[in-house]
Simulated scan of single mutants.
Amino acid sequence: MTRTPFSQRRTEPYGPPALHRRLQAEQPVAHLDWTERGGDVWTIAKYEDVRAMLSDTRFSSDRSNPLHPGHQAYNPKSHQGRIIEMDPPAHSTQRGRVMGEFTVKKIAALRPSIEQIVDETIDAMIASGDRGDFVDLFSLPVPSTVIAKLLDVPEKDYDFFQDKAGVFADGTAPNEDRQQASMAIIDYIATLVDARIERPGDDIISRQLAAGASREEAIGLGHLLLIAGHETTSNMISLCVMVLLDRPELRRQLDEKPELIPGAVEELLRYFTIAETGGLRLAVEDLEVRGHTIPAGSVVYALTNTANRDPDVFPDPDRIDFTRGARNHVAFGFGPHQCLGQNVARLELVIVLEKLFARLPDLRLTAEVSELPFKEYSNFGIHELPVAW
């Protein structure tokens, strides 16, 4: 019996693939051919099932396992400390050690620093002329600078840091170039860690070392913070600005009622759900979901983008409603691997929406959304966003 072929590729920027929607409505748990990856996959599409799966550590996240669908991204030089790639008990120990760095209170204290970064990036945009690529001018520099400050990267190294992060985030770049950029970042962070071992400072790496992290764990954590926190936030900044420029009625709502901005951030996170492969797992034993037995060794994909459009949870899910109260979305995942840096991302997005349009009221698209080059790999986003101001 021939199974339905599966693809994670989107065909339009404002919604999940049609197949994913159909699976949610007709086959909430499905066994499909994933020819793009040379195998098959089980998909889980309903909100409640996705949350249950992401909470169950029998769906393994350990990318060091050759059977795991994310094994191709496994790198032994950075694996220790990359907590999204490991299972308990190592995951529990390391996540517990670092969670205190990302509390709401601690991240809120970063607001003045992030506001300065956003203002300085807008200043640089204005100084560059009256038009350009918003991704290059704004979306990439803001999150990489925030992370550089968190890691206490010397300012003289910011250009190197941003350049390598940009190459790694460029899905159109040759794989060899992306791998070299990743290794350059790992090597650079290793020098930071070695410097903190010798001369501790007031930064995340120093505090993790003092709390018992090994050198290798600290290197992996630094690499994770840059790679995971940089590209996803960059993509969300671009998509938020795109939709607000493309749908001026939404922008007017925020202009007239700035108090809607935090709710708008949650709704846009739900709406776009950009972490395409965040729900990939490996079943380590036979597991049952909705009466279906998923055999041990199976690749399983929690379709978070479809879960966030589940009409049983989000009525009229394709409509953007800034008053929805969508904080129960799963754009940051769920369970033990829920995104550690979500409070940083939220704050960055809120500050961007507070400041960008106030300072650049004439900001506008210079290309149709249908013409924009969208990303088709691990995180959904835009390669370029041509704008004028």
Score class of each variant (00 low, 15 high):
Ala108Met: 00
Ala108Phe: 00
Leu110His: 09
Arg111Tyr: 05
Pro112Arg: 05
Ser113Gln: 14
Ser113Asn: 11
Ile114His: 02
Glu115Pro: 01
Gln116Tyr: 06
Gln116Val: 09
Ile117Trp: 07
Val118Leu: 14
Glu120Lys: 12
Thr121Tyr: 00
Thr121Ile: 02
Ile122Cys: 09
Asp123Asn: 07
Ala127Gly: 04
Ala127Phe: 01
Gly129Gln: 08
Asp130His: 15
Arg131Glu: 14
Arg131Ile: 03
Gly132Cys: 10
Gly132Asn: 14
Asp136Glu: 15
Asp136Phe: 01
Asp136Lys: 14
Leu137Tyr: 13
Phe138Glu: 10
Phe138Ala: 03
Phe138Ile: 03
Ser139Gln: 10
Leu140Asp: 08
Pro141Tyr: 09
Pro141Thr: 08
Val142Gly: 00
Pro143Ile: 07
Ser144Ile: 12
Thr145Cys: 00
Val146Asn: 07
Val146Ser: 05
Val146Gly: 04
Ile147Trp: 00
Ala148Trp: 00
Lys149Trp: 06
Lys149Ala: 12
Lys149Thr: 12
Lys149Met: 13
Leu150Ile: 11
Leu150Thr: 07
Leu151Cys: 06
Leu151Glu: 11
Leu151Val: 10
Val153Met: 06
Val153Asn: 03
Val153Trp: 02
Pro154Tyr: 01
Pro154Arg: 04
Glu155Leu: 09
Glu155Tyr: 11
Asp157Ile: 03
Tyr158Glu: 09
Asp159Asn: 13
Asp159Cys: 05
Phe160Gly: 02
Gln162Asn: 09
Asp163Asn: 11
Lys164Trp: 14
Lys164Thr: 09
Ala165Glu: 05
Gly166Gln: 14
Ala169Phe: 03
Ala169Val: 05
Ala169Ser: 12
Asp170Arg: 01
Asp170Trp: 04
Thr172Cys: 00
Ala173Ser: 14
Ala173Leu: 07
Pro174Phe: 05
Pro174Asn: 11
Pro174Trp: 08
Pro174His: 08
Asn175Arg: 15
Glu176Phe: 01
Glu176Asp: 05
Asp177Met: 11
Asp177Phe: 03
Asp177Asn: 13
Arg178Gly: 11
Arg178Lys: 14
Arg178Ile: 06
Ala181Pro: 01
Ala181Tyr: 03
Ser182Thr: 13
Ser182Asp: 15
Ser182Trp: 15
Met183Asn: 11
Ala184Pro: 00
